[in-house]
Design a protein around this nucleic acid. Structure first.
Lengths: 342, 342
DNA sequence: CATGAGATTCAAAGCGCTTTAAATAGTGAT
DNA sequence: ATCACTATTTAAAGCGCTTTGAATCTCATG
């Protein structure tokens, strides 16, 4: 069932039927009703490609996933972000599409997406330091929102980000207040912008409180469970091990806890742990009492915000860049306590 | 840059240019080369909507995500599956799109997808017992592949599934061989088909070995970490607690381990744990020695297979349904051992 | 009863591509 | 030089929709 046959059925022109369905005013209410009912009855849906071709709008948001980072798409954070975004897209009538691309070809992928007119806008996830994709998208004039920010990029762009620096600064200060002096940082890959900012916050707090940062207490890798385990084991093996560990994700924190317990220590008493918590729905940090003291910020909510932002940017051409800074809450759980006296 | 202007630039007709680019034989090699170079130079990409309209192919695969199950999209398994699928899609030139839909409206969503001609096929994830979507899709004639199967559906359909029954049967037998008699099952939601099959395998093994199934040792909920923790605590509080626990996901198993350790017991000695392991990339089950004894089956690989299958089904109309059964490997790790003597 | 404003409706063009049917060019045979 | 064919190229139709510009209908007015 297409517009033509529907119009024939109704004895109306395609024009009128189209207008009736799209809510144009120059259609009598009587016909509009008749048309709507017929459309309903025949299960008519406009062909999205034809509609897109005629209107120039794809009603589709693109996400380009680089293959390089094998874990990017698989990353649980990614999933929650996308879940939030898709919820918002649905509200605005957009669908979302994913394009998987070989590393380094992201640029190419964006160009194609634009040239093919496949999307109305894109969301850029996991920005790196000095991410060249931002300048590219600006130049191409394709509406986009970044989840996170990119240090080193001077031009304006729209973003949604959590205040990573402030969050890790607070966590570090919190630990210092508890008497900790040797605080380790298990950071994410520091090519990622967010990891950089977290380190900055950590270093800033140390410095501000007159503590020296010790390189052997700082690690930066992809945030897996095993990473948390291994590095904690290695930290505990130091001559003077840390009394507290700051970690960048719940998954890693789980590895940290495993290492602590395998070493016969008690988390929260012998060694404190604070983790960033993206508030993933399948990995809730305890229900009543949080297991981990954590910097909590829902990545799902970030996804929703980013999507809504993008919808607005698309609707209003030449809209000024929008930004939104989310603050993480510091939730105190069982994994932190005063530094042990030695 | 569109076909028309490109053709004008070249002094050729749109027909010839189109044919040259799409590899039709009735174009001289000389012109083809010239056209290809010009296309390259001008960065020409055919408008995907126009192309789709003309060819009737969307070059897009749809995934419909019910909102009901808040965790579905967020589910880490979902992410890995999709990562695998998207890799395969890329190979075949497909993009993938997601549509989020209110619970119960999945049917509606498929109809729309078809009516709007937005996709060439769909992948059905997380089938339930007696899933009505299968009959619907068959009736609509939209090519599709199911990840998993649906007990109770009699008509033929294409699927990729892991032999869940056999896997849990083997695991149960393995534990029985180790002397365990009270074996608990922390299953996923039993409206999910895979959970049903796992329970069947578990029950079958018990029965086969002359053991009675005890209802108080069987739980079925969504597979979160907290679920693993709570239920394990509850199991350990029984008058005669189990000596082994079978669990349906790594995430849940992590909760199980936490509970065991919080109770002052040692996993693998005091109580054995075997988990299903979807081989998620960020949640690797140990590197050298697996932490958990596990039934391992890469869900990512399943995604790739499903996607390839779907591509073939789309290419060959009226292709007979294809099926593919994957066997999970039983990998022995540190979490299982002989039943403790009491 | 003509008239013009306003309300409805319609025919046709156009979005950018593929593809059918027809035209033109090229080639060796007659 | 003509013809029969094949190789190459083209014009035009069509995919299903939106939208412009024009046509038709209605009515209150003069």
């Amino acid at each position: 069932m297409n517009l033509k046959t529907l119009a024939e059925q109704l004895g109306l022109s395609q024009t009128t039927v189209s207008r009736a369905l799209n809510g144009y005013p120059e259609v009598s209410e009587a016909t509009r009703l008749r048309v709507q009912q017929a459309a309903e009855q025949f299960g008519y849906r406009p062909n999205s490609r034809a509609k897109g071709l005629a209107t120039g709008r794809a009603m589709m948001i693109g996400h380009v996933i680089p293959t390089s980072n094998k874990h990017e798409m698989v990353n649980p954070v990614f999933g929650d972000f996308v879940a939030g975004a898709s919820e918002a897209y649905a509200k605005f009538g957009y669908d979302m599409m994913f394009t998987r691309v070989q590393d380094g070809n992201a640029e190419q992928a964006y160009r194609e997406l634009l040239a093919k007119r496949a999307v109305d806008g894109v969301v850029l996830q996991g920005p790196l330091i000095n991410d060249s994709r931002i300048a590219l998208l600006n130049k191409m004039g394709l509406p986009f929102v970044v989840h996170g920010r990119s240090t080193g990029v001077s031009e304006a762009y729209s973003w949604v980000d959590v205040n990573n620096k402030r969050a890790f600064e607070r966590a570090t200060e919190f630990l210092i207040d508890l008497g900790h002096r040797r605080i380790a940082l298990l950071n994410g890959l520091e090519t990622m912008d967010f990891a950089q900012r977290r380190r900055d916050g950590y270093l800033h707090a140390l410095k501000h409180r007159g503590l020296a940062a010790s390189p052997d207490l700082m690690r930066a890798q992809e945030m897996t469970e095993v990473y948390g385990y291994r590095e904690t084991m290695s930290l505990l093996a130091l001559k003077t091990p840390p009394t507290a560990i700051l970690t960048s994700s719940m998954i890693t924190a789980i590895g940290v806890r495993r290492a602590i317990e395998d070493s016969g220590l008690k988390m929260g008493r012998d060694i404190s742990v604070i983790t960033h918590d993206d508030d993933l729905s399948y990995l809730k940090n305890g229900q009543d009492v949080p297991i981990f003291t954590a910097l909590r910020s829902s990545v799902r909510q970030a996804g929703e915000i980013a999507a809504a932002m993008l919808a607005e940017l698309i609707d209003t051409p030449d809209h000024a860049p929008m930004t939104r800074m989310l603050e993480a809450e510091l939730v105190v759980g069982c994994s932190s306590g005063p530094a042990p006296q030695d």
